[in-house]
């Protein structure tokens, strides 16, 4: 386990700038989640740290020592790819044992068997150990690919949307399992996801990337409650933050062009008139789709609300977020 720091990382693929001057410190034992849409540079960041690609400029340090010139193997990392990339000529057992069989490690056979059995148990693939990797379902393959990273204790785990191909139940189970591994081993994680629940529940820190730039880095709470821009504010929150013209509810602070309303920023029962267009009952929460003049707003209400489509209510903003012309907080 180690601290990993990125200093001024820049990387282009052809004319496409994938990362621009990214600096970030992943503290020892942290669970850092990278957020951002496709093409923001999340996977590039992982590949640079893993050593699969070389940065055009900048430095990568693991435990204080520069590793930019090292091969992937020398960096002592473990990466889980979005596509499972299992070895088709090996059994599940051999796939899992692969990272332990490296001649430099020289693990005794009994140790390997024990460790592989342990990881297979955690990921619930013990009954498939003797199958060929090609005979598994997508979810099973992804579990093997996670397991292959977990058999070792590398200095950092790099995971690229590892749970995205799993069904909801397994995803929830493995989320807890990864969190437990993080807590018990004190392992350092850098984790890419699109999933808001994964980001909020697993992360100790969240980094938000926008077109190759790191625009904010902080705890999930900071990112959620105190986003630096409308872009960051849109990354987290279900339903998403409502962005309206600043004067939608009346006079706005100087410089503000947009008002950002998360569901908890919408106070129902006073203020401007609005019409309920749709009531979406999700079980644990109920969403209200509202129209207020030309604007549409989505908010949350009491799960057992009696409101129905067509109802007239009034709403007003409560401690909203304000953004200027370039989308930054005012």
């Amino acid at each position: 386990m180690a601290e990993v720091s990125l200093v001024g990382l820049t990387k282009s693929y052809g004319t496409n700038r994938a990362l621009a001057d990214v600096s970030m410190t992943i503290p020892d034992g942290a669970f850092v989640v990278l957020l951002g849409p496709t093409g923001a540079g999340k996977t590039t960041t992982l590949r640079l740290i893993a050593g699969l690609d070389r940065p055009d400029a900048g430095d990568i340090r693991i435990a204080g020592a520069p590793v930019t010139a090292d091969t992937p193997a020398q960096r002592d990392v473990a990466m889980v790819f979005q596509q499972y990339s299992l070895y088709p000529h090996l059994t599940v057992r051999e796939n899992l044992a692969f990272p332990l069989r490296s001649p430099v490690l020289n693990w005794p056979e009994a140790e390997i068997t024990r460790k592989v059995g342990e990881v297979a148990e955690v990921l619930r693939i013990a009954h498939k150990l003797d199958n060929k990797a090609t005979q598994l379902s997508g979810g099973e393959m992804q579990r093997v690919s996670i397991g292959r990273a977990l058999v070792r204790n590398p200095r950092i785990y790099l995971m690229d949307e590892p749970l995205s191909s799993l069904d909801a139940k397994l995803r929830a189970d493995l989320r807890i399992e990864l969190k437990r591994i993080h807590a018990e081993l004190g392992a350092t994680f850098l984790y890419v996801t699109h999933d808001q629940i994964e980001a909020m529940t697993m992360a100790t820190h969240v980094g938000v990337l926008d077109a190759g730039r790191l625009v904010q880095f902080g705890t999930p709470r900071e990112i959620y409650e105190n986003p630096v821009s409308a872009y960051v504010a849109s990354r987290l929150g279900q339903p998403r933050i409502n962005l309206l013209p600043a004067d939608a509810f009346g006079p706005a602070p100087a410089g503000a062009v947009q008002i950002g309303l998360r569901p908890e920023h919408v106070r129902i029962g006073e203020g401007q008139p609005a019409t309920v267009r749709r009531v979406e009952r999700l079980g644990d929460q109920t969403r209200l789709h509202l129209t207020m003049g030309p604007h549409e707003i989505v908010t949350l209400t009491d799960p057992h609300t009696a409101l129905a489509a067509g109802a007239q209510i009034s709403i007003r903003p409560d401690t909203p977020l304000w953004f200027d012309a370039s989308g930054n907080r005012t």
Partner: peptide
């Protein structure tokens, strides 16, 4: 496959 192997500590 080769990249995966190299990120799992194989030279």
């Amino acid at each position: 496959l080769e990249q995966a192997a190299s990120t799992l500590g194989a030279g």
